[in-house]
Amino acid sequence: MLLSKAAIGSKVKVVSLESKGLLRRRMMDLGLIPDSEIEVIRESPLGDPRAYGIKGSQIALRREEASQIVVEVVN
């Protein structure tokens, strides 16, 4: 599943990153590395971007960025 499709309030785990180069590096710097847990916290009033809880901080990502991250739901 893609992170951009994960339901609000759900907890997911990063499987892999599809982006390349600098963007990939930036995503990883934010803590989006395989196996790390992400909470889908909220969406903005217009639905995009959405805020994610990543390693203790709340980071907003646009759909374009979030759809490059493959995740799986954690129970």
Partner: peptide, 11 residues
């Protein structure tokens, strides 16, 4: 290409 968008929402 639009640059990557990341925005921190601090406490």
């Amino acid at each position: 290409i639009p640059s990557s968008f990341t925005l921190e929402l601090p406490p």
